[in-house]
């Protein structure tokens, strides 16, 4: 691989790194695991980069590679401690949820999102990133209708997690 390619890739990744961090935040729950996944996504992005064509936006392309790595390719390393952090959330939730400060609400929401399964997280991620259903369906390989239906189900699911 030539130096120029490497250079342009690293600069692009540095500029758009937040996308990768967001994927990591969603799919891991501690610092080491976050770094591990970031590393793996970087490798996958770099490997696919020579085939990256300018006609797709770099960021759009990153969503795909990032999510694919997180939900398909990534093997949780041994360092990844299975945190007990999210256990018992349901108990605490009620008390916390009625605390009306927005910050508390957000904390609970993030915890609830972490309880979703990998595919649901991917949908939530793309939704939060303001992607339309066409792009969501193309990224995951499901139909647009099904993406929409699933998204509505996730919203309901989140409601039940938040208000048991």
């Amino acid at each position: 691989m030539n130096k120029e390619l490497e250079h342009s890739f690293v600069e692009l990744l540095e500029k758009h790194q937040n996308i990768v961090h967001k994927v990591c935040r969603l799919y891991t729950n501690n610092y080491d695991a976050h770094n591990d996944l970031f590393q793996e996504i970087t490798i996958q992005l770099w490997r696919a980069y020579p085939k990256f064509r300018g006609d797709a936006k770099f960021s759009t392309w990153m969503y795909r590679v990032g999510l694919n790595t997180a939900i398909t390719l990534y093997r949780k390393s041994k360092r990844t401690i299975k945190t007990q952090e999210f256990e018992g959330v349901a108990f605490k939730m009620k008390a916390e949820y009625y605390d009306d400060t927005e910050e508390e609400q957000l904390k609970v929401l993030y915890k609830a999102v972490h309880q979703l399964n990998d595919i649901e997280k991917a949908l939530v991620f793309l939704y939060l990133e303001d992607k339309d259903y066409r792009e969501i369906s193309e990224t995951l390989g499901i139909s647009e209708v099904n993406a929409r239906v699933k998204m509505n189900r996730i919203k309901t699911k989140l409601k039940t997690i938040l208000n048991p």
Partner: peptide, 24 residues
Amino acid sequence: QTEHKTLSVKDIYPMLHKKSSSIV
């Protein structure tokens, strides 16, 4: 949200040459 520290070009370079541990 930006909980994670922002990586610099210098941080990213060595990552390209690490070994993948993917299931493939």
